[in-house]
Design a protein around this nucleic acid. Structure first.
Lengths: 196, 196, 196, 196
DNA sequence: AATGAATGAGTTTTCATTCAT
DNA sequence: GATGAATGAAAACTCATTCAT
C-alpha cells in the first residue's frame, strides 16, 4: 500500500471540514480558521495547500459536484428504459448522500457564491447543463423537443425548489415523498404528451 | 441642507439602496457604507435611522414582503373561481416587480440570512405559511385534503426553484413561460384528481 | 416676577441632568445625547449653551462644588468653637445632599476627569486647598502647626476614602457612622497633642 | 520574526503597556491601539491574544492585584505580633511597587470600571474582602469585635483616601509619612480600646 | 511539511459636533 | 431660541493572508 501523499490527505480533510462546518454552523460565513481547526490543522496550512479561501471553496464545490455525478452514474447503471434513466437522474439529488443537511448547506453556499464568483458560476453551469442535456436526451425519446425542453426545465426547478426549501424551512416532505412528487411531475408530462 | 420629515425619506432611500446594491453588486456581502453611499448619505446616518445593519436588512425584507403581499392582493381582486385565485397567487411571484434581478437578489439574501437570524427566519416563515394556507384554502375546494397539501408543496417548490434559477442561471424561461408552466403543474393536479 | 432667561433654565436643567445621568447610569461614560434627552432637549441645544461636552462637565463640577461650599458655610453658621467648626466642615461631605449616590458619582467623575483635564484638576485643587486652609485655620488653634498639617491631611484622606468606598463597595458604614468615625479621628489627634 | 512561546511574552508586554499607558497618558480612556503600539505590536495581535479589550483589562487587573498580594505576603513574613501583621498589611499599599503613579492610575481605572463591569467589581471585592478579613483577624486579637470592625473600615478608608489623593493631587505626604500616619491611626484605636 | 506569529485592510458602530432652517 | 439632520473621526473587533522558522 503506497503511502498517500500528505497533500491529498490534507486537502481531503479540509474539503470535508468545509462541508461539515457550513452544515453545522448553519451559516455560510465560515472562516478559514474554523475550517482548518475542524480539519485539525492551522489556517496557514490550509492556505499553503489551496492558495486562498476562494480556491478552497472551489475545490470543495468540485468535490460535491463530483459526488453528485457519481450518484447519478451509479443510479443510471441499472436503468434500462428512458423513463428509468430520467428517474435515476432526478432521484440522485435526493439520495441520502446528497440530501444531508450539510451537503444542502454546501450547495446553497455555492449558489450564493455563484452570484459574484465567475468561476463558481461557470462550474455550476457546466454541471447544470450536463444534467439538462442528460435529461433532454432521454426526454426527447418520450416526447417532442419543445415539451422535452420544458419538462427538463420544470424538473430542474422542482428539484432546486425542494432542495432550497429543505435547507430553509421546516415543514417539507421527506426524501421519499419528494422523489415520488418529482416522479409524478414526470408522469404528468408523459400523460400530457400522450393524451394531448 | 436638513429638512423636516427626512426620516421617512432617508429610510426609504436606504431600503431601495439595499435592494439595488445587492442586485447590482451581485453579492450579498454588501456593507452599510456601500448602501449608504448609494443612498447618498454617510453610513453614520444609516445607523442613526436604523440602529444597526441587521435592523436595516429586516426593514428591507419587510418592504419586499409587503410588496409581494400587495402584488398578491392586487392579482386576487379580479379572481373569481378557486382556480383563478390559485393562479393569481402563483403568478404574483413572477410579476415584473417581483421578478427583477435586484428583487430576486434581495430574496436570496433573506433566504441566506434566515439560516442564522431567528427574526429573519420567523418573518420569512410567516409569509411562507400565509401563502401556503391561502393556496390550501382554494386547492381544498378542488381536491381532497391530502392532494391539496401535496399540490401546495409542489407549487411552492416549483416557484422557489424557478426563482432561484432566475437569480443564478442564464438559460431560464421567461416570466410568461414560467407562469404557464406553473399553471400547467396546477392543471396536472386537477386532472389527476378528476381522472384518478 | 421677572421671567427667568431661558439660558439659565436650560443650563440648570442640563447640569442636573448630568448629575442624574451619571448617578443613575452608574457609569461615567455618559453621552451628551443621553444628558440632553433627560433634560428634555436636543443635544444640539446643549452644545449651543455650553459650547462643548467638556465645558458642560466643568459647569456641572462648579455647581457641585458650589453646593458643597454652601453646605459647609451653612454648617459653619452655628459653630462656635474651633472644634465645632472642624466638625462642621468634615460633616458637610456627608450631608445627605452631598452623600447621595448621584452626587458621589459626579464627584468620582471629576476625580477621573482631573487626571487629564488641566482645568478640572485646577478647579478641584482650588476647592481642596480652600478646604484644607479652612481646616488648618481651626486646627492650628488646637495644636502645633505640624500636627495640624498632618491632621488636615488625614481628615481629608479619610473623607475621600469613605467617599470612594461608598461609590464602589457595598459594606460601607452609613452616613452617621462615618461622621462619628471621622469625629473620632479628630479626637484622636486632639488627645494625642494634649497627652503627647 | 515569529518565535515560539511568544504568547506569554506578548501578554506580559501588553499588561505592562496597559499599566504604563494609563499612568503616563494620565487618562483612563486608553485605546487598544495605543496600548498595542506601546507594546510594540498591532492592535490585532492584542485582540488575538486577549480576545477583547475587557479581557485584557481584567488580566491587567489580576496582575496588579497579584502584585499587591505578593507585597502583602512578603511583608507579613517578618511580622510576629498582631500589631506587626496589621502594619505589614497596611504598609503594603504604599510599597514603592504599589505606590507608583502608574500603578495608582491602574487601580483608579479598576475602581471606575468596577462601576459597570460585574466581573471587575467581583474581582475587586474578592481582594477587598480578603484584605478586610486579614485585618479583622489580627485586630480582633487586640480589641473587641465592634471596634475591630470599625478600625478595619477606617484603615481601609484612610488607605484608599491617601491612594486616590496621591493620584489626583500634588501636595500629598510622601510614602513614609503616609505609612506613619496610617500607623498612628491604628495606634489611636489601640489606645482608645485600652483607655476607654 | 507545518505552524505560531503577525498584520493590514476592512467592518460595524458610536458620538461629539456642526449647520441649515 | 431650538432642533432635526448630518457627518468625520475614531473605536473595538475580525479575518484572510503572509512569513520566519
Amino acid at each position: 500500500m503506497p503511502k498517500i501523499g500528505m497533500e491529498a490527505v490534507r486537502k481531503n480533510a479540509l474539503i470535508h471540514a468545509t462541508i461539515a462546518e457550513i452544515g453545522e454552523a448553519g451559516t455560510l460565513e465560515v472562516t478559514v480558521s474554523q475550517i482548518a481547526r475542524r480539519a485539525g490543522m492551522s489556517s496557514a496550512l490550509a492556505h499553503h495547500y489551496f492558495g486562498s479561501k476562494e480556491k478552497m471553496f472551489l475545490e470543495t464545490m468540485r468535490f460535491v459536484l463530483r459526488q453528485y455525478g457519481k450518484a447519478v452514474r451509479s443510479n443510471l447503471k441499472t436503468a434500462r428504459t428512458p423513463q428509468e434513466r430520467i428517474r435515476a437522474i432526478t432521484d440522485s439529488s435526493f439520495d441520502s448522500s446528497q440530501f444531508e443537511r450539510e451537503v444542502i448547506g454546501a450547495w446553497l453556499n455555492f449558489y450564493v457564491r455563484a452570484l459574484r464568483s465567475d468561476e463558481t458560476r461557470r462550474l455550476l453551469q457546466v454541471y447544470a447543463r450536463r444534467l439538462q442535456s442528460n435529461l433532454l436526451f432521454d426526454l426527447r425519446k418520450l416526447m417532442d423537443s419543445d415539451s422535452a425542453e420544458m419538462a427538463a426545465q420544470g424538473l430542474a426547478a422542482l428539484i432546486d425548489g425542494f432542495y432550497i426549501r429543505a435547507a430553509l424551512q421546516d415543514d417539507v416532505p421527506d426524501r421519499e415523498r419528494i422523489k415520488s412528487m418529482v416522479g409524478d411531475y414526470l408522469n404528468f408530462w408523459l400523460e400530457k404528451v400522450s393524451h394531448g
